[in-house]
C-alpha cells in the first residue's frame, strides 16, 4: 500500500465524515424522542392510534431503507413534495429509525413489572410522573443493549446516502476509486467506519456500566 497516496486521498474522504455525522446526530436526536412518544402511543388504550402506529412501524420496518430514500427523493416530487437530497435523507432516516426505536421502547416499557405502576399509583403519582420518574428510567436500562445495536447499524446505514449522491464517507470514497482506478479509498472508508463503531461500542459499554448500580 502506498502511504503517500493514502495520505493524499484521506482529506477528501474525511470531508465526508461531516455529512455522515450530521445524518447520524440528526437521526439519533430526533428519532429517540419520537420513538418514546410512539411507544407510549402504542401502549395507549385507544385503538385508532394503535392501528395507525402499527401501520407506521410495519411500513418503515417492512421496506428497505434504500427504497424509502429513493421514494423520499424521487417519489415524493410526484405528490408535489420536493426535498434536497440531504433533507430527504434526514426525513427518511428519522422516520425509519423511530420505527425501530418505537418497538424497542415498547418492549422496554412492557418489561417493567405491573407492581411498579401500582406502587406509583398508590403513592398518588399521575401517569406523566410515573412514566418519567419510575418506568422510563428502568426501561432505559433494559433497552441499552438493543439500542447499542441500532446505534451501530445507523452509522453503517448512513452510507446509503451515497445513493442520492450525498457527499458522505462512502460517496467520497467511491468518487476517489472511480477517479484513480484504485480501490484503496474503500479500505480507508472501512477504517473510518470501524473507528466510529469502536467509539459507539465504548459509549454504550460506559452507559451500561452506569446503569449497573442496581439489578
Amino acid at each position: 500500500m502506498d502511504v503517500g497516496y493514502i495520505t493524499s486521498i484521506l482529506g477528501f474522504i474525511l470531508q465526508g465524515t461531516g455529512i455522515t455525522l450530521k445524518v447520524y446526530v440528526v437521526t439519533i436526536v430526533c428519532s429517540i424522542p419520537l420513538g418514546i412518544l410512539f411507544a407510549l402511543g402504542k401502549l395507549c388504550p385507544f385503538p385508532p392510534l394503535q392501528y395507525l402506529l402499527a401501520g407506521y412501524t410495519w411500513l418503515f420496518r417492512g421496506t428497505p431503507l434504500l427504497l424509502q430514500l429513493f421514494f423520499a427523493y424521487y417519489g415524493l416530487p410526484v405528490f408535489g413534495i420536493e426535498f434536497q437530497p440531504l433533507t430527504a435523507a434526514y426525513v427518511t432516516f428519522v422516520l425509519n429509525y423511530a420505527s425501530y426505536f418505537t418497538e424497542i421502547f415498547r418492549g422496554g416499557i412492557q418489561s417493567i413489572d405491573e407492581g411498579q405502576y401500582e406502587a406509583a399509583k398508590a403513592l398518588g403519582m399521575n401517569y406523566a410522573q410515573t412514566m418519567r420518574r419510575i418506568i422510563l428510567p428502568q426501561a432505559t436500562k433494559v433497552i441499552l443493549p438493543p439500542m447499542g445495536n441500532e446505534a451501530i447499524n445507523l452509522i453503517k446505514d448512513t452510507a446509503l446516502c451515497a445513493a442520492l449522491s450525498i457527499p458522505e464517507i462512502l460517496r467520497n470514497a467511491k468518487v476517489t476509486v472511480a477517479r484513480d482506478f484504485s480501490i484503496e479509498a474503500y479500505f480507508v472508508a472501512a477504517v473510518v467506519y470501524l473507528v466510529f463503531t469502536f467509539v459507539i461500542i465504548r459509549v454504550f459499554r460506559e452507559l451500561e456500566k452506569r446503569y449497573s448500580y442496581y439489578s
Partner: peptide, 20 residues
Amino acid sequence: NLFPHKSVIENLIEAPVIVK
C-alpha cells in the same frame, strides 16, 4: 414494589417531593 433504580432514601422522598 420498591423502585429498584432508586436508593432507600430516594424511594421514601419520591412521592412527597414529586406529588406533594
